[in-house]
Design a protein around this nucleic acid. Sequence first.
DNA 1: ATAATGACTGGGG
DNA 2: ACCCCAGCCATTA
Length: 114
Amino acid sequence: MPDNLFELVYRVVRRIPPGRVATYGQVARILGMPRGARTVGWALRALPDGSDVPWQRVVNARGAISFRPGGYAASVQQALLEEEGVVFEAGRIDLKVYGWAGLDPIEERTLRRT
DNA sequence: ATAATGACTGGGG
DNA sequence: ACCCCAGCCATTA
């Protein structure tokens, strides 16, 4: 298990497949921190440019992007997701359709190793 | 050690 | 369904 929280968050986010999205809270729960949604946000914010972590696949519980609406960052995230086939309607993603199912038990075990 | 700051959430109105 | 808000919690100042 990595010693720091950020690396743990990145490991989970790297498993979200293209074209699917997970919520901050969902990632937090997978890590055993049911109230740590905001902390997941902190970890992603700390990512350097050019990282291999698909940060764009993490959105808030309402299926919306959590950057200032209309801002540059928000438009970049939406564009990246749309390139993967994710559809936005009224500024939101239908999590029933694009939501990530999460790690299966086998993958979960792999995650905790190392 | 105290206080402020968010890429957040769930529930009440 | 939408808006508001108290609670949350690692990191910073």
